[in-house]
Write a protein that binds this DNA or RNA. Structure first.
Lengths: 217, 217
DNA sequence: TTACAATAAAGAAAATTTTCTTTAAATAAT
DNA sequence: ATTATTTAAAGAAAATTTTCTTTATTGTAA
């Protein structure tokens, strides 16, 4: 593997920066459609409501160089971002828990733009097994162990009920999963080399509701 | 309005703290089930993998007081958190865009634990109008304007395609919406008094994929 | 009662992230 | 050519958040 990168990227980008990068990418894809060949950090900043220096620093992690008075090459920047984020390669994943949220993620087409490919979904519910959502088959949970032996899948999407999250997460790790995208409210404890990305709706609800409450005093 | 609060809460809690609060709440509800009447910050921190001082500072925003050598009263803390976050009252919301993600959010029962009540969903797709998902009716988009006149809904959940996000957001604001939970990738520009909570899946994917990439060097 | 240990609370320090400032490079206009 | 202006890049400062220290309080045990 060890493929050579086009640009000298930052080894460790700060998390706030990483979270902003997809926003740049989406915006840049839009302006590219409009035929914009070059774009400056101040222009991007104005559109996305970000400090121009922040934009420069954020984009610097990808290794692309901008030219004074011209800005960045739109095309180059898009590719550098996709490359840096890994959106332009196929990131295979398993999904466990085909409930409401799980089904939605399966049907959600935009995952493709993230290079995320859910190979299969697993559930223990007889009623769900055998169904296909968004072209993804729902298999019996036990098949996970068998299937993971043949496929080298690194990402597990966890959309189970909270009370089985820890157990399932451990199973996933035993199946060779290196990163878990955790949509449950449960805190899962795993060996520290396993990447756990918590994505709890309630965190967002908390910020939203609190800010709404703060505002109406 | 202006109801009296039980505890003297922090006027402005930092966002990272707000995002952690639901995690405490979920954990505390679990230990309460187990009959734990008091719990200390170090104990919570050990379970949730957080610095004990961090826990103390986070919980302090709710105004609850803990006792040395005893910790916090579980019951009191749960209620203070729910109260602070607004999870224990009914927060009415409209949802626009009953696609994959929108449907999932409608069916997603856990919103109830956040006190979030989606009164109605709106879409322009004839095929969807009239349907009911998770007990929520999908109405014709234009009905939004009519319905919002009678109901004093403050929260709008935006799950439309990206290219109509801005337009719909403006409509929502014109309908009296004060806070928008934006699940699209689009940056929406609204008057600054409107609260916009961006919740883009791709931000999380970015962090996850990048960390996975970093790890396998 | 008195000492001791655990822990919340308050404050200080450190680390991180964002914003500000300066410098240098590139283009356009004179 | 020369000058002026825009802008990326690098560095400094400010703000925010997290971690570390200290203090004071409470319960437990000698």
């Amino acid at each position: 593997m060890n493929e050579k990168r086009k640009y000298k990227t930052k080894s460790h980008a700060p998390e706030p920066t990483l979270k902003r990068l997809p926003g740049y990418l989406y915006f840049l894809e839009q302006v590219k459609e409009e035929g914009v060949l070059n774009i400056s950090a101040p222009t991007i900043g104005k559109e996305l409501d970000l400090d121009p220096t922040q934009v420069v620093k954020d984009l610097a992690v990808t290794g692309v160089k901008g030219k004074p008075r011209v800005g960045y090459n739109t095309y180059e920047l898009i590719h550098a971002l996709e490359d840096f984020l890994g959106f332009n390669k196929v990131n295979e994943a398993f999904l466990v828990g085909a409930g409401n949220l799980g089904s939605a993620l399966m049907a959600y087409q935009e995952h493709q733009s993230l290079g995320l490919k859910i190979l299969a979904a697993f559930d223990v519910d007889e009623a769900k097994i055998g169904q296909t959502i968004g072209g993804i088959h729902i298999l019996e949970y036990n098949k996970l162990f068998h299937l993971s032996g043949r496929l080298n899948v690194k990402i597990g999407i966890l959309t189970t009920p909270n009370h089985v999250a820890q157990e399932v997460a451990e199973d996933l790790v035993n199946c060779g999963i290196k990163a878990i995208w955790n949509f449950t409210s449960a805190k899962i404890n795993l060996p520290k080399e396993i990447i756990v990305q918590n994505t709890s709706m309630s965190s967002y609800a908390a910020v939203l509701l609190r800010r709404l409450n703060d505002a109406s005093l």
